Amino acid sequence: MSQDTAKPSRKGLPRWARLLMTPLILLAAAALIWSQLPKGAYSTDLSRIGDGRPALVLTYDASFLAGMRVMGYMDEIRDDYMPRVHFLVANVGTPDGRSLANRHGVRDGAVLLFSAQGTLVEQLPAPAGAEELRQALDRTLMATR
């Protein structure tokens, strides 16, 4: 038997490249997932409503998409209003979040704007864009002066 037939020839990538393929694929997948996460965490501490600073509260339900879309709008305007305004999320999957949503008759994706004293100033069922959110927040800030 000749040595030529004893070892089958391998065509394609060298062994070191094949070994690196799996970690590179996992790293690329992790980077893609990371890039889709919200840009910053939002507090869920609803006790901050009425603590002397106006609050924008998003009602969020993980089972639906509207809240995630509105959270993207919040990401766009957040830096312009920090630290004058609390940006909060009321997760309707928690007792506090569900209670707030039920009290004001809203669902996923609704935005509630509160004065510094905790009075509801404006309610947006599902803002269509960052500009609509910005205008409502500006009205709230003007009303609370």
Rank of each mutant, 00 (worst) to 15 (best):
G97N: 14
A90S: 14
Y42H: 10
A28G: 15
M71G: 08
L19Q: 04
Q36T: 12
L27V: 06
M71Y: 07
F87N: 09
A62T: 08
L26F: 13
N102W: 08
N91Q: 08
L26Q: 03
Q36P: 01
A31W: 12
M71I: 01
G72L: 10
D61L: 09
I77R: 02
A41W: 06
A30W: 03
G67H: 02
Y81N: 07
R78I: 03
L58Y: 10
R84E: 07
N91P: 03
A101F: 15
I25V: 10
R98Q: 15
T22F: 12
V89G: 01
M82P: 04
I25W: 03
G105V: 04
P23V: 07
V106R: 01
D75S: 09
N102M: 08
V70F: 03
G72T: 14
A90G: 13
A31G: 11
G50E: 09
M82F: 06
L46Q: 11
D61V: 14
P38V: 04
T44W: 04
L65N: 06
N91W: 09
R98N: 14
R69P: 02
L26S: 07
R78E: 13
V106W: 12
T44Q: 11
M21E: 12
L65V: 03
L88C: 02
F64C: 01
T44P: 06
L88F: 11
L56A: 06
P54T: 08
P83A: 04
V57A: 13
R78A: 09
T44V: 06
R78N: 04
D79F: 06
R53T: 08
L20M: 03
G52K: 03
P83E: 02
A62F: 05
M82D: 04
T22P: 11
Y81H: 05
T94G: 09
G105C: 09
V57K: 00
H104K: 06
T22L: 07
L65A: 03
S35L: 15
I77K: 01
